[in-house]
Design a protein around this nucleic acid. Structure first.
Length: 301
DNA sequence: AGCCAGGCCCAAC
DNA sequence: GTTGGGCATGGC
């Protein structure tokens, strides 16, 4: 990885398996917006940036070398060789192979735990466009402004202490529906020790981490798996949402609605990279579904 | 217009 | 321990 710093811009050479669409528009994050040039502008860890991929170079605009080393390198998971993972998973079956050739530039971001927790509580029983709007409103109303960039004021994700201090009705303006109450309850519980437990979840046994997450209001198995996958580098986490349930039934032949069997099958079949496999499949199935409305997965796509 | 969305809670078995 | 109705909102 060769890094160049140039006028508040970072350029990284020699990174393969990187495509902004496959990374920022695959449902793992909700705060990045596509620009007309194919780049994405957004906020992570309280830093606003614009990221693009041109001629095999990753370009991070509005970032210092310090920002890169401290945040972006890990956030973008740049030190992982996705080539190896893709080859391993592609060998599984032709569907997996197709999903990977379709979303070849996907990477699992290393997101902030608190932001991921709240974001995926919001995500439940909703759809991605609305989730993005809800989170945008939450940040604009309760996040710290972090300055203007590309003609817009950007906001950090709301601090734990901030959401722990307010009431459910204060969130009315964010249009979160019944999830507002979950968020306030969860914030108050996480804040009991200043977020210490949450921040250490990746350093304790996975079963204990899962148990803590499931004890939080609005966090069930699916949301908990998203949190551990997208913010704790637990790549065998296999979130079963409505889309992946369809995949498990229609492609892998597992009895419809049998969640336990689906989890077991994924763990056995995909193993340590189940979560990454899941994300390729999720992106693929949703994209091809945009072009058909049969309600079934088109195996020939 | 009506079904669906990166599900979870809780009461009733 | 499992099951299913209810849930607030808006995308399409």
């Amino acid at each position: 990885m060769k890094i160049t710093e140039d006028n508040n811009r970072i350029i990284i050479n020699d990174i393969n398996d990187f495509h902004p669409d496959h990374i920022f528009d695959n449902g793992q994050c909700f705060r990045w917006e596509r620009e007309i040039d194919g780049s994405y502008t957004g906020v992570a860890f309280g830093k606003a940036a614009n990221i693009n991929y041109i001629d095999d170079n990753i370009i991070i605009n509005n970032a210092s070398l310090n920002d890169f080393n401290e945040y972006w390198k890990d956030y973008l998971d740049l030190e992982r060789d996705y080539g190896i993972i893709k080859r391993k998973l592609s060998e599984k079956d032709s569907h997996m192979g197709k999903a990977i050739s379709f979303g070849y530039g996907m990477r699992i971001l290393g997101q902030d735990k608190w932001e991921t927790l709240i974001s995926f509580i919001i995500s439940q029983n909703s759809n991605i466009p609305r989730i993005k709007k809800c989170i945008k409103a939450l940040c604009a109303n309760f996040g710290d402004p972090i300055g203007e960039y590309k003609g817009k004021v950007h906001y950090a994700f709301p601090e734990l202490e901030k959401l722990a201090q307010i009431d459910t009705s204060d969130l009315d303006t964010c249009r979160l529906g019944y999830r507002a109450d979950y968020i306030i309850k969860t914030a108050k519980k996480v804040a009991l020790d200043g977020g210490e437990t949450l921040n250490r979840l990746d350093k304790i046994p996975p079963q204990d981490a899962l148990e803590y997450l499931l004890s939080l209001s609005g966090v069930g198995p699916k949301v908990a798996n998203c949190i551990t996958l997208f913010s704790m580098k637990k790549y065998d986490s296999f979130p079963l949402d409505v889309w992946i349930k369809r995949v498990m039934h229609q492609i892998y032949g597992i009895e419809e609605g049998n969640v336990k069997m689906m989890q077991n099958y994924a763990a056995e079949y995909f193993g340590e990279y189940g979560g990454i496999a899941q994300q390729y499949l999720f992106y693929y199935i949703r994209e091809i579904s945009k072009y058909s409305n049969t309600g079934r997965i088109n195996h020939t796509c």
